[in-house]
Design a protein around this nucleic acid. Structure first.
Lengths: 332, 332
DNA sequence: ATTTGTAATCGTAACGTTACGATTGCATCT
DNA sequence: AGATGCAATCGTAACGTTACGATTACAAAT
C-alpha cells in the first residue's frame, strides 16, 4: 500500500515535504508540488485515515444514533430518506457516516457515552429527544459537536433541525375545516413527545381561531402502529357522535384508520375527510382520497449534516437551529 | 482523555503491561490484571480506535454500499430492516457499520475502489449485483473481504447471502393455483435482474407442474413504481381475457395493483387473487384480502455481517453462501 | 568578509496502540 | 556457589501522519 514514505523515497524528498506538497503548502516549490502529485497519482496514493486521525484528532467520521423499532419496520419508514440525505451530504463534505442503531432495550445515554469516549467520531447526530434529554447536557459538557433531530424543553441553546409540526398541524386542521369538518380527530404519539405536543398546539390554534371547542375524546395517543390506530379509530367511528375529519400522525396511522373505515364500509373523502403526513410517497398512491402534506426528510438529513459540519468547523460559533416546513399537495 | 499511558503512570506499570492486562494476557499476574481493569473502569478508559487501527491494520469498521432511489423512497423500503440487521449485528461483533450511499449517477465501481484504497474498512457489503459484476472480480483480486447481497452469473465462487426467489415464486404461484387461478400475472423488475430471473423460473416451474402454458402477455417487466404497476395491471384488467391471479414483485407493485383494481371497483380476494411479498408488514394491514409471504430482511442483514465477519477472520476459509427462505402466512 | 534574509527542504517527535525481544527477581537444580 | 528455569514485567520500535523547529544554500546587505 502506497504511503508518504514510499513517495518520498522515490523522489528523494523528505516525508514532510511530500506531505506538504500534497496539500499545496506554500513552503514547497511549485515544480516539486507537481512532481509529488504526479507520483502520488501514479502509485495510487490515498492518505491513511488512521494515521491522520491519530495525529490530528479528527476522524472524518460522523455518527448517527438511530433508534430502531425492531418489531415494526414500517414505523421507521421516514428514516430511509433521512439516512439517504445524511449519508450523501456527509460524503459530499468528505465525511463518512456511521450508523449506530439502538434497540428499545438499549440505554440511550450509554450509546452516547460510548461514542464520546472511543474518539471514533467527529460529531454526533441524535434523534428522538426526550424531555430534559440528558444526552444534550452531556454532549455540551464534553464539548462534543452534535446536532439533534428534534427539540426538547431545555433552557440551554443547542443546535437542532426540526420539522415545524405546529404549523403543519395548524394547516392540516384548517384544511379539514375548509371541507366542512368540525369534529376533527387527531392522532398523536405520546404526550411527552415534543412533536406530538407541537401538533396538538397547532391543532388547538386552528380550532380556537374557528371557535370550535376541543373535545378531548377525539385526541388519540399512542398511535405508533397500524393496529393501535385501527382500534382507536374504530372506537371513534362507533361512538354516538363520530368524527368527520381526521389528521393522521403518519403513514402508519393512516393505514390503520383506512383499515377501520374499510371494515365499516365507509369511504375516505366523503364520509370522513382525512389529512396525513407523507414522507415516503405512500399515501398518494393509495386508492383513497386523502389530503397530503409532505416533509422532505432527505432535506432534513442534509440539513442535519450541514449544521453538524458547521459546528465541527466552528465550535464556538452561533448555535444554528433550523425549522423545516411541510409542503401541502394542492387540494383535491 | 484516558489512555494507556495514564493508567500505566498511575499504577506504576509499563504501558505494555497495561495493554496486555486489558486483554487478559497470560503473561500478566491475575492480581495486576484486576488492578488494571479497576483503574481502566475508574478513569473511563476506552481504547483509541485509530491508534489500534494504525498498529494492527484492522479498522473494526464494515462498510455497506447501498444504492438509493433518490426519487422514490418507498422502493427502498426493505433496506430499513436490512440496515437494522446489519448495524445491530455489526455492533454485537464489535464493529461499527458505515453506510456508503450511492445515487443512480454514481459509478458503482468507483465507490468500491475508493473504499479499497482508503484503508478505512475491514470489509465491504455490496448489493444490487449486475451480470458479471466487475466489483466482485476487483474485490477478490485485491483480497478485500466482502459479501454480496444477491447472486450473479460468475464462474468464480464468492460469498453471498440471497433470498431464494425461485422457491418463493414457486410457492406463490402454487398458492394462487390452489385458489383456482389459471391465468396468473407476474410482476418482475428487469429481465437482467437475477432476482427477477429466479422468480420467473419458479413461476414457470409451478405452471409447468400444473400443465398450464405460459402466456407472455401476463408477465410484466419494469414494476419499479406504483405508477408503472398500476398502469400495467390496468391494461391487463381491460384485456379480453383478464388475469384471475397476480403475484406482486413487492409492496409497491401491490399498492399499484390495488390502485388499478380500486378504480374498476374490483376487490382483491374475490375478483382477483393476489399474493405479495411483504418485508415491512405493510401488506398485512391493508384493508384487502391478500396472500402474504415475508422475508426476514433484518435476518438477511445479520447474516451478511456474519458471513463477512467469518471472511475477515478466515480469509482463506471456505466460501460461505446462504439462501434465505420466505415464510408464508397461513392461508386465509 | 561577515552578517542578515529568504526560500526550500529536512529531521525529529508525537498521536495511542501493539509486537517482540530483553530484563528482572526469585526459586530450584547441579 | 553457580547455573538454570520460570514468571512477571519492561523498553523500544513501529504503524502513517502532521506540527514545529531546525538546517541548508544562496543572494543581498553591511
Amino acid at each position: 500500500m502506497a504511503n508518504l514514505k514510499q513517495i518520498a523515497a522515490e523522489l528523494s524528498l523528505s516525508v514532510t515535504t511530500v506531505s506538504r506538497a500534497l496539500k499545496d503548502g506554500p513552503e514547497v516549490q511549485p515544480s516539486t508540488i507537481a512532481r509529488v502529485k504526479e507520483a502520488a497519482k501514479r502509485v495510487g496514493y490515498l492518505p491513511n485515515h488512521h494515521g491522520r486521525a491519530l495525529k490530528t484528532g479528527r476522524t472524518l467520521t460522523l455518527t448517527a444514533v438511530l433508534p430502531m423499532e425492531t418489531r415494526d419496520h414500517l414505523s421507521d419508514l421516514l428514516k430511509l430518506p433521512l439516512i439517504e440525505g445524511m449519508t450523501l451530504a456527509a460524503r459530499q463534505a468528505g465525511y463518512s457516516l456511521s450508523i449506530y442503531s439502538t434497540t428499545p432495550d438499549d440505554d440511550p445515554i450509554e450509546s452516547v457515552q460510548r461514542q464520546l469516549q472511543a474518539h471514533s467520531t467527529d460529531g454526533l447526530i441524535i434523534t428522538r429527544l426526550v424531555s430534559g434529554d440528558p444526552r444534550v447536557k452531556l454532549l455540551l459538557d464534553k464539548r462534543m459537536p452534535f446536532v439533534a433531530f428534534g427539540r426538547t424543553d431545555l433552557d440551554t441553546a443547542y443546535p437542532y433541525v426540526d420539522v415545524d409540526n405546529e404549523q403543519i398541524a395548524y394547516e392540516a386542521t384548517r384544511r379539514l375545516m375548509d371541507k366542512g369538518c368540525r369534529r376533527i380527530a387527531l392522532q398523536l404519539l405520546v404526550p411527552e413527545d415534543q412533536a406530538s405536543a407541537m401538533r396538538l398546539s397547532g391543532y388547538g390554534r386552528a380550532m380556537a381561531e374557528a371557535g370550535v371547542p376541543i373535545d378531548q375524546s377525539l385526541i388519540g395517543h399512542g398511535m405508533f402502529t397500524m393496529e393501535s390506530s385501527a382500534a382507536w379509530f374504530d372506537r371513534l367511528l362507533a361512538s354516538s357522535d363520530p368524527p368527520t375529519g381526521l389528521a393522521c400522525a403518519n403513514e402508519l396511522g393512516l393505514l390503520g384508520a383506512l383499515h377501520a373505515l374499510g371494515r365499516r364500509g365507509l369511504a375516505p373523502g366523503s364520509d370522513v375527510h382525512i389529512v396525513t403526513r407523507d414522507s415516503t410517497r405512500l399515501a398518494r398512491f393509495l386508492p383513497a382520497r386523502i389530503g397530503i402534506h409532505s416533509v422532505d426528510m432527505a432535506g432534513v438529513g442534509r440539513k442535519l449534516v450541514e449544521v453538524l459540519e458547521n459546528r465541527i468547523m466552528n465550535p464556538l460559533g452561533p448555535v444554528e437551529t433550523v425549522l423545516m416546513q411541510g409542503r401541502f399537495e394542492p387540494a383535491e
